[in-house]
Design a protein around this nucleic acid. Structure first.
Length: 804
DNA sequence: TAATTCGCTAGACCGA
DNA sequence: TCGGTCTAGCGAA
């Protein structure tokens, strides 16, 4: 028996010569990346308790065309019920057997958990932890005997590199069958290398020049293998770089073989998306990661192309070389260094994005026991599901099946009422306090023991108890719910991490790791409520979701009622926050006392926090005057002159910069300086510039996402019209892409007819009337209405303010 | 196929 | 040409 130690970096499975599915773990040991096999671990599923006849029938059953049998059957208990654990020799056989078992009328469970994930769920191990390993080597294969977490753990510091390719694209989207790879860049933390076949590259620092593309690819592949990476990063490599490299390699009789032991890239489909997997090496697609983060609201991005992301995250305006320019440079050789720079920056920034989020990804990986490859491509439901699977395994709890289509349909018919939103008091207000509940939904789950396994039904009228929601849903008090123990430990862990982070010096490299840790927990906590009400979720529970929001509405409305009782004015409320106007006879200290008083009555895990005090704030009426004041839009300024603009056009990407900037300037003049006349002057100036035709195109662009195929739209809005026209010109527009359009002078009747993709519009070609009356004026008019101005005042001028 | 509901607004669409 | 209704997108929480 031999010994070593190392970090677990991936779990995978493969078919051996006998057709058995065998799990292997990849460990980063002192000898490099090593693969250890776990031949004892077999694929399995559960079947409902069977009588002896049925059990015999399964034992005798010959499955599939080849007539295989169940490997073995064990009896187990889950949540107190008896289940049969059926083992198979391979995942292939399990898949065949599950259909036939169902046809036999047998209820089966946990039949759709990927084998690699199954292994990680079943073993009390975290990926990227350090282990002491004992193994036996036979016929060149290392079989694991035991592996135990080391007492002292080091943080896994992976070898990382990012790659990016540039291709030839003569006026169309590049196709690997025809268009060459011109350049490839590999970026490491301390250097980057550009591979190219252009002779202009020779002599340039950090470049490797090859005579042919075939030699370049082969050189690039062998360099990658030599780097012996743990993590390989791309930007949209799942859909572009990896398939492209694979295809080009194939054309030259090569293989994109830079995975473990010279294995090739495997291109998979994950739902509708592509995924490129490498054995033993984690392919982290930064584009997928950014999508994940923006889904979870961890970053807010207007567009997800590399340039926009780099601008948002690092404040750097990276220069883009458009495809046509790439070809021009390539053909002429002029400006070659610019192309090299572009390629290099793309790879370097791709690496930087992942370095930025690595601590958070790593923590997510550990919590749900997904590899980095899986975690960066996961959805919210997969992450929560992963966590619940682990918990179920630990407690031998029953795992519900995913619902079938008709069940999902049924669930969708009944939705759950959400948070309470109070109509604000419109107008300009002074001296406001904003209070909010910390982690409201998770803390309600914990406080009232909300979980499917503690649900007792609707409480009879008159029943008293702390776990009866305002709508009557009743949860047990004598035992802790399955969801509750998870959420509660996540909440505790997060506040511990947050405290540690607050204490540590922010320059300490550990600080980023700690921040990432608490952030990962926040993401999971925030998704928990949502998944309970998600129709396709295994642990869907309408009752739980309904109780959470009912309690939430109760608590926030209670804060308002108490505040009014104490002499504050409840200005506005949205779900977990209350805006209070502090009357003249009250102080900030009175607000703090009020918060304390509320907290004294709240359950232990709930807390109302003082978010901030604001000097001034404005709420406006809706466009439809009958509709009253607008919810979810307001602006505040605190005592340090920090402006907070929420919900207004200013924060929306589907409004032009000219409208957004004018709106922001107006709000600022009003809140910061209290100067309505200046606000009016700002609007008039914008209108004047528009009329003179001097506004540059980039201030006029409206960004919108194309969410479906262009022919699937019932209503042809400006963005669809602009996209359709662009496609007619030969531009490719993918579903999900964000396009920018401008309303031109054109001679169409409708706005759509005048909408054109930004790239086809000349400077100065814009419809000034449209931008005045459909962009600038609507963005500011409701704000100025509150101060007594009308639209006429903006367009003509002269009249003075009556208010303020 | 991949967390929820609440809410605002624009612009097309449609019939009088 | 109008006003109501519907489709669509995005943001707040």
């Amino acid at each position: 028996m031999a010994k070593t130690d190392g970090f677990l970096v991936d779990v995978d499975y493969e078919s051996n010569s006998l057709g058995d599915s065998v799990i292997s773990g990849f460990f980063r040991t002192p000898d490099g990346l090593e693969q250890f096999f776990f031949p004892e671990f077999k694929p399995y599923l559960f079947a409902a308790s069977l009588n002896s006849n049925a059990l015999e029938a399964i034992r005798e059953k010959k499955f599939g065309p080849d007539g295989f049998s169940v490997l073995k059957i064990e009896e187990t208990k889950k949540s107190g019920k008896t289940l049969m654990k059926l083992f198979f020799k391979s995942t292939k056989e399990l898949v065949i057997a599950r259909d036939e078992l169902r046809n036999m009328g047998i209820s089966i469970f946990e039949f759709d958990i990927p084998f690699g994930k199954r292994f990680l769920v079943d073993h009390p191990i975290e990926p990227y932890c350090e282990f002491d390993i004992e193994f036996i080597e036979e016929a060149g294969k290392k079989n694991m005997v035991s592996f135990k977490p080391k007492k002292e753990q080091h943080v896994f510091a992976p070898k990382m590199a990012a790659i990016d390719i540039e291709t030839y694209s003569p006026g169309r989207f590049p196709t690997p069958q025809k268009d060459a790879i011109l350049m490839i860049c590999t970026a490491l933390r301390d250097k980057s290398i550009v591979y190219t076949t252009h002779q202009k590259g020779s002599g340039l620092p950090g470049t490797k020049v090859f005579a042919t593309e075939k030699e370049m690819l082969s050189g690039f592949f062998s360099d990658l293998r030599e780097m012996d990476l743990d993590v390989l990063i791309t930007y949209n490599g799942d859909s572009f770089d990896m398939p492209y490299l694979t295809e080009r390699a194939k054309l030259f009789g090569l293989k994109a073989d830079f995975g473990f032991d010279g294995s090739e890239i495997q291109l998979k489909r994950k739902g509708l998306e592509n995924a490129a997997k490498l054995k033993g090496v984690q392919h982290v697609d930064a584009y997928q990661t950014i999508s994940l983060l923006s889904r979870f609201g961890a970053v807010s991005l207007v567009k997800k192309d590399l340039e926009s992301v780099v601008a948002e995250l690092f404040g750097y305006a990276k220069k883009k070389v458009p495809p046509a320019k790439i070809n021009e440079i390539w053909d002429s050789g002029n400006g070659f260094e610019e192309l090299v720079m572009y390629n290099r920056e793309d790879a370097e920034y791709t690496l930087r994005i992942i370095l930025e989020y690595y601590p958070m990804l790593l923590e997510l990986s550990k919590i749900v026991r997904f590899s980095l490859f899986d975690v960066c491509r996961s959805s919210a439901s997969q992450i929560v599901e992963g966590l619940l699977l682990i918990k179920s395994q630990e407690e031998s709890a029953f795992v519900p099946n995913k619902p079938d289509e008709s069940e999902v349909h049924q669930r969708l018919l009944q939705s759950v009422i959400g948070g309470y939103v109070k109509e604000p008091v419109p107008g300009l207000h002074e001296n406001i306090a904003v209070l909010d509940f910390r982690s409201l939904y998770p803390s309600i789950i914990v406080s009232h023991n909300i979980s499917p396994d503690t649900y007792k039904g609707i409480a009879p009228k008159g029943t008293k108890g702390k776990n009866i929601s305002p709508e009557g849903d009743w949860f047990a008090e004598d035992r802790e719910g399955f969801f509750v123990s998870i959420v509660s430990s996540l909440l505790t862990l997060r506040s511990k991490y947050k405290k540690e982070y607050q204490k540590i010096d922010k320059k300490d490299p550990k600080a980023r790791l700690m921040f990432g840790r608490q952030w990962a927990l926040k993401i999971i906590l925030n998704s928990f409520y949502g998944t309970m009400g998600f129709a396709s979720f295994r642990w869907y529970s309408r009752e739980c979701a309904r109780a959470v929001t009912a309690f939430a509405r109760h608590y926030i409305q209670d804060v308002n009622a108490e505040a009014e009782k104490d002499g504050f004015q409840a200005l506005y409320t949205d779900t977990d926050s209350a805006f209070l106007k502090i009357p003249r006879d009250k102080t900030h200290e009175n607000v703090r006392e009020f918060v304390k008083k509320v907290n004294a009555k709240l359950p232990e895990s709930m807390e109302l926090e003082l978010e901030n005090f604001y000097r001034r704030g404005i709420f406006v009426t809706k466009k439809d005057p009958k509709g009253g004041a607008a919810k979810k839009r307001y602006a505040l300024i605190d005592y340090n002159n920090n402006l907070k603009i929420v919900g207004f056009e200013y924060v929306r990407r589907d409004w032009s910069t000219i409208a957004k900037r004018t709106q922001k300037d107006v709000i600022e003049a009003l809140l910061k300086e209290g100067d309505p006349q200046k606000s009016v002057a700002i609007v008039r100036e914008a209108i004047r510039r528009l009329k003179e035709g001097k506004v540059p195109k980039k201030e006029l662009v409206v960004l919108t996402q194309i969410k479906r195929k262009l022919n699937k739209y019932d209503s042809i809005g400006p963005h669809v019209a602009a996209a359709t026209k662009a496609v007619a010109r030969g531009r490719e527009i993918e579903v999900g892409s964000v396009i920018g359009f401008v309303i031109t002078k054109g001679n169409g009747k409708s706005i759509s007819e005048k909408a054109e993709l930004e790239e086809y519009v000349k400077e100065g070609n814009y419809d000034a009337d449209y931008y005045i009356s459909h962009q600038v004026v609507p963005a500011v008019i409701r704000i100025l209405n509150e101060l007594g101005y009308s639209e006429q005042d903006l367009l003509e001028g002269g009249k003075q303010s009556k208010l303020f």
